[in-house]
């Protein structure tokens, strides 16, 4: 297949998917509309993790830290600012996530791949303990609930309805996707992929591997924080269980199910995961993670490329 035809196929698919997602809130019933919005947000979180797992070849088990700090940063800013401003709250969430990502990146990249996973896990637990026990600031176990202010941009204000919120989320996620895609295709992204393929050789060629990894983790943390901001805005609360290990674990599941190294694969993975949860919990109630865990392990062994692995070349061209 020629490059041109691959590109045309890709952009057609992109346009169709975008159109379907944009129409979704108009035709879907309330439950599934909310479902679609949440999947977009989880998809963004999974995409951010894919930058590490799929493109740099290092697995983060600590993405809940960035997600959670984005969430809490937004919530705290909205509760403290008078009048509350969505733009400033978003900036606060992103700044918090970036700061946390810088700290985690600095320490976790000091060690090779396997230790990296452990360090990110430990760091996310540190932030969980801090958020859970620092009740005066974070609300402790109860978390923080807030009222959502209208979106104000350049003198134009808009109060969100569920449908416009969906479009807002869709816009942010689509933009993030295009940015992340551009990053993975840039010279920087190429170096990341070369670290994935052969780290010692990348170092030998003369690239400062550690610095590239630090930037990759920070970038990934920033987008994970953005997902946290969106989640806070959608649900109007920040809760400690979104900083817990479960979220980090789910992110890894989304990636593996959907296919790492494709950016859209993890979004599909998130959709598949939540659909599986909906279907399986009818038969297995709260034990749906038993079959999900089995499917996950089988995917790792027999389908390491994930569901979208076959399209990897098309998606990355």
């Amino acid at each position: 297949m020629t490059r041109g035809r691959l590109a045309r196929g890709y952009w057609t698919g992109f346009g169709l998917a975008l159109a379907a997602l944009a129409v979704a809130p108009l035709v879907l019933p309330e439950f599934w509309r909310r479902f679609a919005t949440e999947i977009l947000i989880w998809g963004l979180l999974a995409m951010s993790s894919d930058l590490l797992l799929g493109y740099t070849g290092i697995v983060s088990f600590g993405h809940s830290a960035f997600f959670g700090v984005g969430m809490y940063g937004t919530a705290m800013a909205l509760l403290r600012l008078h009048p509350p401003s969505l733009a400033l709250a978003t900036a606060a969430g992103l700044a918090g996530a970036a700061l946390v990502a810088a700290v985690v990146a600095y320490f976790s990249t000091r060690l090779r791949d396997i230790y990296f996973a452990i360090t990110t896990l430990v760091f996310s637990q540190i932030f969980y303990v801090v958020i859970f026990t620092w009740t005066e600031v974070t609300g402790g176990e109860n978390g923080l609930a807030f009222r959502l202010p209208p979106l104000a941009l350049f003198g134009w204000t808009h109060r969100f309805t569920p449908t416009t919120l969906h479009w807002f989320v869709l816009g942010v996620v689509t933009l993030s996707y295009l940015v992340l895609r551009r990053v993975t295709q840039s010279p920087f992204g190429m170096v990341l992929q070369s670290i994935r393929e052969n780290e010692p050789r990348t170092l030998a060629i003369g690239y400062d591997v550690k610095r590239y990894k630090v930037v990759a983790v920070m970038l990934s943390g920033l987008f994970a924080g953005l997902a946290g901001v969106l989640y806070a805005v959608q649900n109007r609360f920040a809760a400690p269980n979104f900083v817990f290990f479960d979220v980090s674990a789910n992110v890894v599941i989304f990636n593996v199910l959907g296919g790492v190294g494709t950016l859209v694969g993890p979004v599909l993975g998130a959709a598949v995961f939540f659909l599986l949860r909906e279907i399986l919990s009818r038969y297995f109630t709260e034990y749906y993670l038993i079959p999900v865990g089995l499917i996950f392990t089988l995917t790792v062994i027999f389908l390491p490329q994930g569901l979208l692995g076959v399209l990897r070349r098309t998606l990355n061209q």
């Binding site: 070849g57 674990a249 999900v292 996950f296 062994i301």
Partner: peptide
Amino acid sequence: LTTILATFGVSLVLQN
């Protein structure tokens, strides 16, 4: 990397 992921899947199954 794949062994971390596989044992993680096993841990999900065992815990639940």
